[in-house]
Amino acid sequence: MESDLNIKYIAELSRLELSDEQSAKLQQEMERIVGYIDELKELNVDGVEPTAHAAPLSNVWREDEATASYSRQEMLENAPGVINDNLIKLPRVLPQEEA
């Protein structure tokens, strides 16, 4: 399990573009870090409940009431691209149909 760390595959899952040089460096660094965290495997954790969260809270409910939110205009000010002053402009999601 230690040796099959494939940085290019993980970068793909992470949606991170890496240069070949970066990949090589990260591959090396990550192998060392993963080697270090592997020390957890020596510990017997049978029957131990996992901790997801430190606060002793479970479901927190509120009334389902509509309240005013931020204005569309304000939120759009941070968008990289805007259409008609009220929509976020995105790159094409589906491939273009052939004519």
Partner: peptide, 22 residues
């Protein structure tokens, strides 16, 4: 990358779940 790795299929139990137990 490290976070993606420890959550990825086949590694979740060995790393993330184990870490939550520790």
């Amino acid at each position: 990358l490290l976070g993606t790795y420890v959550l990825s299929s086949g590694y979740y139990d060995a790393y993330y779940l184990r870490a939550q137990k520790v």
